[in-house]
Structures are given as C-alpha cells and as structure tokens.
C-alpha cells in the first residue's frame, strides 16, 4: 500500500496532511495553555494575574503562530477545502478573530495604559481568551458534524465549545503548576483537578455522540479491525486520565518534584485524542464530501513548500526550544530591562 502511494504521488498531499495535523496539535497544546491561563485569570487575585500573564509573556506570540501555520497549510496545500471550510464556519471564525484581536492587544495594552485602567484590559484579556476558545471549540464541533446546522448540530457544537474551553483550562493549569510556586501553584492544582473532571465528562459525551452525528465515523467504529484501534486509543486515554488525577491529588510534592509531569501527561492525552479524531476523518478533509487528494494543490507547488518546510521546521523547532530554555524555571515578573 505504501509503495502504491509513492507511485501515485499521493504521498505529497498526505505528508502535508500530516504536517498540518502536527502544527494544529502543537497549536492546541501551546496556545491551549496560554488561552487556558487567559481564562483562569478570572479566578485569581490582582497580583496572581500579573504572575500568570508573566508566565506566558515571552511565548504567546510564537504560540499563536502555530495557528497561522496550521490554517496556512490548509490554505496552501488544500486550497479547495480551505474555502469551503472557512465559508461554512464564517461566524465562529469571526467570533474567534474578535477574541484573538482583543486578547493580543490586551496583552500589550494592560502593561502600558495608566495603572487605573489596567483592570479593564485584564478583563479584555479574559474575555478575548474565552471567545477565542469558544470559537475554536465551536469550529471543531461544527467540523465533526460535517457543518450540520440543525438544532442537534448546533447543540453538539456548543457542547464541544465548552469542553474545549475546559480542556484549555486544564492544560493552562498544568502549565501554571510547572511555572509557579506557593499559593498560586496550589490554586493551579485545584484548577487542574476541576477542569480535568469537566473535560472528561465532556469527552465522554463527545465519544458517545460523535458516531451518531457523523455516519462515516460510525461506520469506522463498527468495523473490524478499525474498532481495535479505537479501543486501544480509548484505553491509553483512560489510563492517562486516571494517572493524572492520582498525581494531581498528591500535588504539589516536596521539592517541587514532578511539577512538569501533569503538563506532559495532559499533552499526551491531547495527542491521543487528536490521533483518534484525525484517524476518524481520514481520508476526508471536508467531512464526507471532499478527500485530501481532491482538495490538494498542484504537486509542483506542494514540492517547493515541502523543501521549505523540511529545511525550516528543524531550525524553527530548535530556536523555539531555545526560547523555552532561556525563560525556563518559575515565572518571574516581566520587565523589558
């Protein structure tokens, strides 16, 4: 089968589908944590808000870039699907963008306006993060249902929107466990536990409803050997969730041991959920309507982008890692000098 794919030249669109999924997954984790932190500040006091935002300060800009890469790859590698998907998602995309605008500018304005007005921009930061997450969740839900705009479809999408917010809060809280200490860290553990329970409840609901909403997925689930694959994914995910919950109950540990572990586990849970989803949709890019191959750009365009991507991605990952290394350890107050 692999040989056949190579002979057909189909490996090129599939490689791009892989790259696109990869950058969306990275986006989900990276911007997920800073969106989560953005939503969690609502529950924090004045000083904690500063500390929490300081923990994401040097990173959020680059995190957001993964969204541009993900959507950019959709746009450049699958131009035919890009138009269809984004036209269908017009409203949630607009909502997400309004959130994105406010969140991005609030981050800078809050540090530069007169001190008395700072709370306003903190608020905008919170609402921006919330809108953006809700928008993305709704987009995801709507995508899963194949852009079903009936009441059932809308309700399902709204449910996913809420679940995604909770999932972002979970990874955000895990990030804070890693990057903060003392009372803020203790608070973060509480947040993580709360949102873990919420996300799991939501996740179960999704697993139950998704096959009903999407016939293609239902067919896959009920056929052999695909069902085994789903079973394995589910098994891994459940194990990880249980492990994370047990771990969180013991947090924070003496000497701050394993403060990075919840973040790592959550990332892995993201990974498995994502693989499950991606596997369900394959080979479609517009659910049940257009396959990856039908939507792909011309091979001569794909190949020149692939060269670029293979050359640049390692460098990019290296300097991203370097930036995380520079700002390692517990978050300190941010200042320019």
């Amino acid at each position: 089968m692999v040989e056949q794919t190579i002979i057909d030249g189909n490996w090129l669109p599939y490689s791009f589908a892989f790259l696109m999924c990869l950058s969306m997954l990275i986006y989900g984790v990276l911007d997920g944590y800073d969106l989560g932190v953005g939503m969690l500040i609502e529950n924090a006091n004045w000083h904690e808000k500063d500390r929490m935002i300081a923990s994401i300060g040097p990173f959020w800009d680059a995190n957001e870039t993964w969204l541009i890469l993900g959507i950019g790859l959709l746009l450049v590698a699958f131009p035919m699907a890009h138009g269809i998907i984004l036209t269908k998602l017009y409203l949630p995309v607009a909502v997400m963008l309004f959130g994105l605008i406010f969140r991005g500018v609030a981050f800078d304005f809050r540090a530069k306006v007169p001190y008395q007005q700072k709370w306003r921009w903190n608020n905008k930061f919170f609402y921006g993060s919330l809108l953006m997450s809700l928008g993305q969740g709704y987009m995801l839900g709507s995508y899963i249902t194949g852009f079903d705009s009936s009441l059932a479809g809308v309700t399902f999408s709204a449910l996913i929107a809420v679940v995604l917010c909770s999932a972002y809060c979970l990874v955000g809280a895990c990030w804070l466990i890693m990057k903060t200490d003392n009372t803020l860290q203790e608070k973060s553990v509480k947040w993580a536990k709360y949102h873990l329970v919420n996300s799991v409840a939501g996740l179960v609901a999704i697993y139950a409803v998704t096959p009903l909403m999407n016939k293609h997925i239902f067919d896959k689930l009920s056929s052999f050997p695909e069902a085994i694959f789903y079973l394995l994914i589910a098994l891994f995910t459940v194990t990880l969730i249980l492990w994370l919950y047990r771990l969180l109950r013991k947090m924070p540990m003496p000497n701050d041991r394993y403060c990075w572990l919840p973040f790592a586990i959550t990332t892995t849970i993201y990974l498995f959920t994502f693989i499950g989803l991606a596997y369900s949709f394959f080979p479609y890019i517009v659910p049940n309507k257009m396959t990856l191959l039908e939507a792909a750009a011309a091979p001569e365009s794909l190949i020149i982008m692939l060269y670029g991507a293979l050359l640049v991605l390692p460098i990019l990952i290296a300097y991203t890692a370097f930036a995380y290394y520079i700002f390692r350890g517990k978050a300190r107050d941010l200042s320019y000098d």
Binding site: G57, P58, F59, D61, A62, E64, T65, I68, L69, G72, L73, L75, V76, A77, P79, A297, S301, I304, M305, G308, A309, V312, L313, L316, Y319, T320, A323, I326, F327, L334, S335, Y336, D337
Partner: peptide, 26 residues
C-alpha cells in the same frame, strides 16, 4: 500558497519567537 507558507516559515516564527527574547530577555 507557497509564498504565504514561506512567509510563515521563514519570517513569522522568527520574529514571534525572538520578540520574546528581545522584549523580556535583556
């Protein structure tokens, strides 16, 4: 497509990542 992709790959990530170092890394 490829032109926009090259913009993101060669420029966007570069500026966004090192902006963090430039602003808060002094």
């Amino acid at each position: 497509g490829p032109l926009l992709a090259y913009e993101v790959l060669t420029a966007f990530f570069l500026e966004a990542t090192f902006l963090g170092v430039m602003l808060f890394g002094f």
